[in-house]
C-alpha cells in the first residue's frame, strides 16, 4: 500500500458570508497525479491555494503524511517547504537573478549549505536546459523560460507534493508544450505527487490518475483519469468537457 501524502476532510471556505468551497473531501497518495477541473469560478484555484495555506480555510482538516495540521502560521511555513507551488504568473523575484531565485528557498529558508544547494540548482537547470541563464534576470526571459525556472525554484526545496495552479494559462501557445513536458517528466521519471489545476484538457487526460471535478464550490465527481474523459459520471462534467472542445 502506497503512502498517503495529503488528505482533506470537510473543508469549507467562506469569503465573508459567501461560501465558495463546500465540504471538500479527498486524498492523494505518493506518486499520484490529481487534476482539479471545472469551469471558471468553480473554486479550483481557491482550493489549491488552501492546500498550502495561501488561503485560510474556514473549517475542515488537513492531514499531511498522516499527521493532522494545526493551522498556525508557523506550521504552514514548515509545511510549505514540503509542498512546492507554481503559479499562473510565474512570480519569480524580479530583483534576483535565476540562480538566486532558485537558491533563496534552500539557503535562506532551509539554511542548507550554499555550495551544495548551488550544485543541485545547476543540475536542475540542466534538466530543463537553461544552464546558460543562471545570471539572467527574470525580465530577460520568455514566459516559458520563467515558468520552467519557477518549477525548478519549487523543486529545489525537495517537496513531497507539487501544486500547479494554471501554470500554462499566461503562456504563448508555443511555450506551453515545453512546460507541460517538464511536468509530465516529473511525474513519470521522478514519480512526483502532483495536484494540477489546468484548462489543458489533452494534457490532463494524458497525465491525471484521478480527476476531481468542481462546480460552484462542490466536488461533483471524483473519477479515474482515463474514465473521466471518455465517460464522465455527471451531466455537468460531460457538458463541461463538451464546452472545452472546439
Amino acid at each position: 500500500m502506497t503512502k498517503e501524502i495529503l488528505r482533506i476532510e470537510k473543508l469549507n471556505k467562506f469569503y465573508d458570508k459567501r461560501q465558495v468551497l463546500f465540504n471538500i473531501d479527498f486524498s492523494i497518495k505518493q506518486g499520484e497525479v490529481l487534476a482539479l477541473l471545472g469551469p471558471s469560478g468553480s473554486g479550483k484555484s481557491t482550493l489549491i491555494r488552501c492546500l498550502n495555506g495561501l488561503e485560510h480555510f474556514s473549517s475542515g482538516n488537513l492531514f499531511f503524511a498522516g499527521k493532522k495540521l494545526v493551522p498556525t502560521e508557523k506550521n504552514w511555513q514548515r509545511l510549505r517547504q514540503k509542498i512546492g507551488m507554481v503559479f499562473q504568473s510565474y512570480d519569480l523575484f524580479p530583483n534576483l537573478n535565476v540562480l538566486d531565485n532558485i537558491l533563496l528557498g534552500p539557503t535562506k529558508v532551509q539554511k542548507k549549505n550554499h555550495d551544495q544547494a548551488k550544485q543541485e540548482a545547476i543540475s536542475l537547470l540542466q534538466r530543463i536546459g537553461l544552464t546558460d541563464y543562471t545570471a539572467a534576470y527574470p525580465r530577460q526571459l520568455s514566459g516559458g523560460q520563467k515558468q520552467r525556472i519557477a518549477i525548478v525554484r519549487a523543486l529545489a526545496l525537495h517537496p513531497e507534493l507539487m501544486l500547479f495552479d494554471e501554470v500554462t494559462a499566461s503562456l504563448d501557445p508555443e511555450m506551453v508544450r515545453g512546460v507541460l513536458e517538464i511536468i509530465k517528466e516529473l511525474s513519470e521519471k521522478d514519480n512526483m505527487t502532483m495536484i494540477i489545476v489546468t484548462h489543458e484538457m489533452n494534457f490532463a487526460e494524458q497525465i491525471a490518475d484521478r480527476v476531481l471535478f468542481l462546480d460552484d464550490g462542490h466536488v461533483l465527481e471524483e473519477t479515474d483519469g482515463k474514465q473521466f474523459f471518455v465517460n464522465a459520471q455527471t451531466k455537468r462534467a460531460r457538458e463541461f468537457l463538451e464546452s472545452m472542445k472546439f
Partner: peptide
Amino acid sequence: APNQIDAGKAIGMNQFQLARY
C-alpha cells in the same frame, strides 16, 4: 504585487524572511 508575497510564502518563508528577501 500580492503574487510576490504568495511566491515567497510558497517556498516557506516566515514573516521576517518575507520582509528581508
